[in-house]
Structures are given as structure tokens and as C-alpha cells.
Design a protein around this nucleic acid. Structure first.
Lengths: 146, 146
DNA sequence: GACAGATAGTTTGATATCAACGTAATTGAA
DNA sequence: TTCAATTACGTTGATATCAAACTATCTGTC
């Protein structure tokens, strides 16, 4: 007789198979790693991804950025605040549709992104090199669930 | 002539290939989905994972939980607060080592976990069914990066 | 037994995340 | 042209996340 509840096998199954948990774990571990790599530049991995998403010919709207990052629009709004305060991004009302906002990088933002990009390249190459399996397959799987 | 910066190709490459970004996207999408499924039970996907991790014969320490979830110890401390306030978990000084804390489920916590588990089973089955590729391969990749 | 170093958690401060609600602007139909 | 429905964002409140600094406890060495 054991004092383990009847559903303990289920608990172990969830612990080992839950894609949500595994994705959270992977996301946290990768974030910490890139956060550390970007620390000398004063940005986090999320801020790098956000700024990279803004680096395009036409400044995107908040909604477009939210879609790109698969996050809530209100989260994008919140995440832009420290970047705007730091003078890295600009937010302007869209002249075509005054409900919308166009978000772009400032010169300082573009410069910081350019300086941080080599860090991403080397760190990401290191991670891919450590992967036992094919990184493309992992990417495809992640894209499928997102 | 275009006004696109020289590194624009790199920007697109990062956008499409960054495992950190892809993992964040997947984690956010999966979280939202399970958050929605668990909403009738008053818990989030993260709280479900945490409580599931506590459902074992010997109540684990904070550090063990942090390791299981691949999160910082201080995050575990923070995440336990709303659960403790809701009467779902208990935190007690470890008699063997008074630096440590043993975290366990209350009767109410165990009951809620039992009621929410069928939701996880059906929701997770639905997600796996939607996956074009092998879920085991995705799990293996996620485990490798975490 | 005393004490330096290591270990386990907590607290603090900043950012991240979402849902729900509210506001402003656009669109489409009558 | 009106005006109801839709769309785009912002705000609020709660939780999540981490690093850094702190406290308490334990361990090994002398």
C-alpha cells in the first residue's frame, strides 16, 4: 500500500508530455540565455525580438506586431513603453487610419539593433550546434502550435 | 534604390529562424489556449502545471519545483502566493533542513487538480490531433533546449 | 566549538502577460 | 447622411518573470 493518490500516473504523464509545459520550459530557458547574452546592450531577448520585428521599410501597426509575436495587443503596448522611454522606438498615429499607430525604430534603436545582431548570430549558432536533432524540424513544430 | 537598411535580410532571417522567438510564440499560444480551457476552474495553465508538479508522495522543495519548471526560484515563490491565498497549497519549513520549504497540495488543491485534469486530457488530445508532425519529436526538441 | 563558504528562500524593482473594459475612429447599411 | 456595428488601441488589475541583494541555515575544516 502506498499513500500515492490514484491519479499519480496521470500526474507523471502530464509532467512528461504536456506540450504547454514543455514549451514554457524551453521558452524560459532560451530567454534566460539570450537575456544574458544581450545584457551588455541593456536589452532583453524579448526586446530584441520586438525591435527586430520593427525593422522594416513600413513601420507596422501595433496589431501587426502582436500578430508577428503571437502576443496580445495590450502586451505590445506595454512592451513598447520602456523602449520608447529609452528613445529606441517611436509611436505615431497612422495618417491613413487614425485609430492605428505606426511603430518604428529611432536611429538609436536601429543602431542598437545592428550592434546586438552579431550577438544573436553567435548565440543562436551555439544553441543550434548543441541541439542533437534538426533545428528545422523543431522550428516547424513550434510554428505549427503557434 | 530602396530605403531598406542593409541588414534587412538578416532581420527577416532572425524573424523566421530564432528558436527563442519561436518558442515564445508557441508558449504564448499554448498558454492562452489552456488558460481558456481552465478558466471555469479559476486557474491558469501555469498554475495547473505547478500544482501538477506538487502532486507527489513527498512534497518537493521550492528548488525542486523551480528545476522541474525550468524557472527561477524566486518565480516559484511568487507563483505560490495566489495559490496559497486560495487555499490550494501549503508551504512548510522542512524539518530535516530548516532552510528549505516543503510545498504540498491541500485537499482542496488535490480536488481541483483532479477536476481540471480531464480538461487537460481533452485539450491536449485536440492539440496533438491538430499537429501535422509527430508530437514526440517536438517534445524531444523542446526538452533538448530546456 | 568557531567560522568561512556554500546552500535555500525571500524580497524588491523592473518588465512581461493577459482579459476585461473603455475610447476613438472607420465602415457599411438604410 | 445617420448610426449601429466593427476595428484599433489604451488602461487597469492581477499574475508571471528574472536578477540582485538579503537573511537564515547548514557543512566542512580547523
Amino acid at each position: 500500500m502506498s499513500n500515492v493518490p490514484a491519479a499519480f500516473a496521470t500526474t507523471l504523464h502530464i509532467r512528461d508530455n504536456c506540450l504547454c509545459l514543455q514549451a514554457q520550459r524551453a521558452a524560459r530557458a532560451l530567454s534566460r540565455r539570450f537575456d544574458e547574452a544581450f545584457r551588455p546592450y541593456g536589452i532583453t531577448s524579448g526586446q530584441f525580438s520586438l525591435m527586430n520585428g520593427l525593422n522594416r521599410p513600413e513601420p507596422p501597426t501595433i496589431g501587426a506586431v502582436a500578430s508577428l509575436l503571437a502576443m496580445d495587443r495590450s502586451t505590445v503596448t506595454a512592451n513598447l513603453k520602456p523602449l520608447e522611454r529609452a528613445g529606441l522606438v517611436t509611436i505615431a498615429v497612422d495618417a491613413e487610419d487614425r485609430r492605428g499607430r505606426r511603430v518604428g525604430l529611432t536611429v538609436a534603436g536601429r543602431d542598437l539593433l545592428a550592434r546586438a545582431t552579431p550577438v544573436w548570430i553567435s548565440e543562436h549558432a551555439a544553441i543550434e550546434a548543441e541541439l542533437p536533432a534538426d533545428a528545422d524540424a523543431l522550428r516547424a513544430g513550434l510554428r505549427a502550435v503557434a
